[in-house]
Computed example of a mutant assay.
Amino acid sequence: MSNPPGLAFPRFAFSHLAAGFIAVLVGYTSSAAIVFQAAGAAGATPAQIASWLWALGIGMAVTCIGLSLRYRAPVLTAWSTPGAALLAGSLAGVPMNEAIGAFLFSSALLTLAGATGWFERIMRHVPQSLATAMLGGVLLRFGLDVFISLPEQLSLIGTMLLAFLLLRHTVPRYAVALTLLVGLVIAGGQGAIHVEQIQLAFARPVFTLPSFSFGSLIGVGIPLFIVTMASQNVPGLAVLRANGYSTPASPLIGWTGLTGLLLAPFGGYAYNLAAITAAICMSPDADPDPAQRYRAAVWAGVFYLFTGLLGATVASLFVAFPHALILTVAGLALLSTIGNSLATALKDEGERDAALLTFLATASGLSLGGIGSAFWGLVLGLAVNLLNIRRRRRLAVGAR
Score class of each variant (00 low, 15 high):
Gln153His: 15
Gln153Gly: 08
Gln153Glu: 15
Leu156Gln: 13
Leu156Ile: 13
Ile157Leu: 14
Ile157Ser: 04
Thr159Pro: 00
Met160Leu: 04
Leu161Ser: 15
Leu161Asp: 05
Leu162Ile: 15
Leu162Glu: 10
Leu162Arg: 01
Phe164Trp: 12
Leu165Cys: 11
His169Asn: 09
Thr170Arg: 10
Thr170Gly: 02
Thr170Ala: 06
Val171Trp: 07
Val171Gly: 03
Val171Ala: 12
Ala175Met: 09
Ala175Val: 01
Leu178Phe: 15
Leu180Gln: 07
Leu181Phe: 12
Val182Glu: 09
Val182Pro: 08
Gly183Pro: 08
Leu184Gln: 09
Val185Cys: 13
Val185Thr: 14
Val185Gly: 13
Gly188Pro: 12
Gly189Lys: 10
Gly189Asp: 02
Gln190His: 08
His194Asn: 14
His194Asp: 14
Val195Cys: 03
Val195Trp: 15
Glu196Leu: 07
Glu196Val: 09
Ile198Leu: 00
Leu200Gly: 04
Ala201Cys: 05
Ala201Glu: 14
Ala201Asn: 11
Arg204Cys: 03
Arg204Asn: 08
Pro205Met: 06
Pro205Ala: 13
Phe207Gln: 10
Thr208Ala: 09
Thr208Glu: 05
Leu209Asn: 07
Leu209Cys: 05
Leu209Tyr: 05
Pro210Thr: 00
Pro210Leu: 02
Ser211Cys: 01
Ser211Ile: 08
Phe212Thr: 13
Phe212Trp: 10
Phe214Leu: 15
Ile218Tyr: 11
Ile218Asn: 06
Gly219Lys: 01
Gly219Phe: 02
Gly219Ala: 01
Val220Tyr: 06
Gly221Asp: 12
Gly221Trp: 04
Pro223Leu: 02
Pro223Gln: 03
Leu224Ser: 12
Phe225His: 03
Val227Gly: 05
Thr228Tyr: 01
Thr228Cys: 07
Met229Glu: 02
Ala230Arg: 10
Ala230Gly: 04
Ala230Ser: 15
Ser231Gly: 14
Asn233Met: 07
Asn233Val: 05
Val234Ala: 02
Val234Thr: 05
Val234Phe: 15
Pro235Phe: 01
Pro235Leu: 00
Gly236Thr: 03
Gly236Phe: 06
Ala238Lys: 03
Val239Trp: 00
Val239His: 00
Leu240Glu: 07
Arg241Asn: 12
Ala242Phe: 08
Asn243Lys: 15
Asn243Pro: 02
Asn243Cys: 11
Asn243Phe: 10
Asn243Ile: 06
Gly244Val: 07
Gly244Asn: 08
Tyr245Ala: 10
Tyr245Arg: 06
Tyr245Gly: 12
Ser246Tyr: 04
Thr247Ile: 11
Pro248Leu: 06
Ser250Tyr: 00
Pro251Ser: 00
Pro251Asp: 13
Ile253Trp: 04
Ile253Val: 14
Gly254Arg: 13
Trp255Met: 12
Trp255Val: 14
Leu258Pro: 05
Thr259Lys: 01
Gly260Asp: 06
Gly260Thr: 04
Gly260Lys: 11
Leu261Val: 00
Leu263Pro: 08
Leu263Ile: 07
Ala264Leu: 05
Ala264Gly: 09
Phe266Trp: 00
Tyr269Arg: 06
Tyr269His: 15
Ala270Met: 09
Ala270Glu: 12
Ala270Leu: 05
Tyr271Val: 07
Ala274Gly: 09
Ala274Leu: 02
Ala274Glu: 01
Ile276Ser: 00
Thr277Tyr: 02
Ala278Cys: 05
Ala279Arg: 01
Ala279Lys: 03
Ile280Phe: 07
